[in-house]
């Protein structure tokens, strides 16, 4: 999907977002006032050097952290100051999260890991099984339903994490360096899956990355430096590397 086809209604809105932390006697300003909106269906990459605040921003977008000031709205709902249980419900139904280090539950099988958001938010296990199996198969793990994370390679674990992120067809997927721990082959595969899901399902995708090649696939690149947005560019299909076509 390109920028012109994306809906104009903002799926993610950020207003005056600030985040500071105390480190002993010092106060460290991580984010120093961000304002932007991401429309529905857009694929946005958040870039920046190490320490620029991109992972912190992603955490705030997911409601995993509390801003020092400002707010985040997801699909019209302001989330930053919601009570934790209410926020968990919003997250469960609205966001799919892909961690850099996969963060699968080690005691659950691949199938159970994918099923978990369904069980937490939607309904009975039996009803979600078909979708979970379909997703795992679609990411190439149709023969690994009963494997535990420790029995899977890094790439396979990340694919399970992807399937988990998409089981509830969330309107938003947030991914924190999803290919950071993977080799190039696996990284490309994961990216392909993400892009397919973005295009087919119309999911709004926000990706934190320092990889320019990865960012090239995004509809929009937001670059952070020292806690501020220094550039916010839309891009055209001409920017997409040839290898993916």
């Amino acid at each position: 999907m390109n920028a012109t086809e994306a809906s104009t209604a903002p799926m993610i809105e950020v207003e005056g977002l600030r985040k500071s932390i105390r480190n002993g006697a010092r106060t460290v300003d991580i984010l120093r006032g961000l304002d932007f909106a991401i429309p529905q269906g857009q694929f946005a990459a958040i870039m920046g050097a190490s320490g620029s605040g991109k992972s912190t921003l992603l955490g705030l977008l997911a409601g995993l952290d509390t801003p020092s000031s400002g707010d985040v709205r997801l699909n019209g709902t302001a989330i930053s100051y919601l009570p934790e249980d209410r926020l968990a419900q919003v997250r469960g139904k609205t966001i799919g999260f892909v961690f850099q280090s996969y963060q699968l539950i080690p005691t659950l099988t691949a199938l159970e890991n994918v099923l978990l958001p369904y069980e937490l938010n939607a309904g009975e296990t039996q009803n979600g099984l078909a979708r979970a199996r379909e997703l795992l198969t679609s990411v190439g793990l149709g023969d690994r339903f009963g494997h535990y994370p420790v029995q899977l390679s890094g790439g396979e674990q990340q694919r399970v994490a992807l399937a988990r992120a998409f089981i509830l067809r969330p309107p938003i997927v947030l991914a924190d360096e999803p290919t950071g721990n993977l080799d190039s082959t696996n990284g490309e595969h994961v990216l392909e899956l993400l892009l397919n899901l973005n295009r087919k399902e119309g999911t709004t995708l926000v990706l934190v990355t320092h990889d320019a090649v990865l960012a090239a696939y995004a509809d929009r690149r937001i670059t952070l430096r020292d806690g501020l947005i220094v550039s916010d560019e839309m891009h055209s299909d001409a920017d997409v590397p040839a290898v993916m076509e």
């Binding site: 997911a62 995993l64 249980d85 966001i95 999260f97 961690f99 539950i105």
Partner: peptide, 16 residues
């Protein structure tokens, strides 16, 4: 702790 973080991210309530 880490498991709690993941579970909350996936939408688990405290009660759960």
């Amino acid at each position: 702790i880490k498991e709690v973080v993941v579970l909350k991210t996936l939408g688990a309530t405290r009660r759960r």
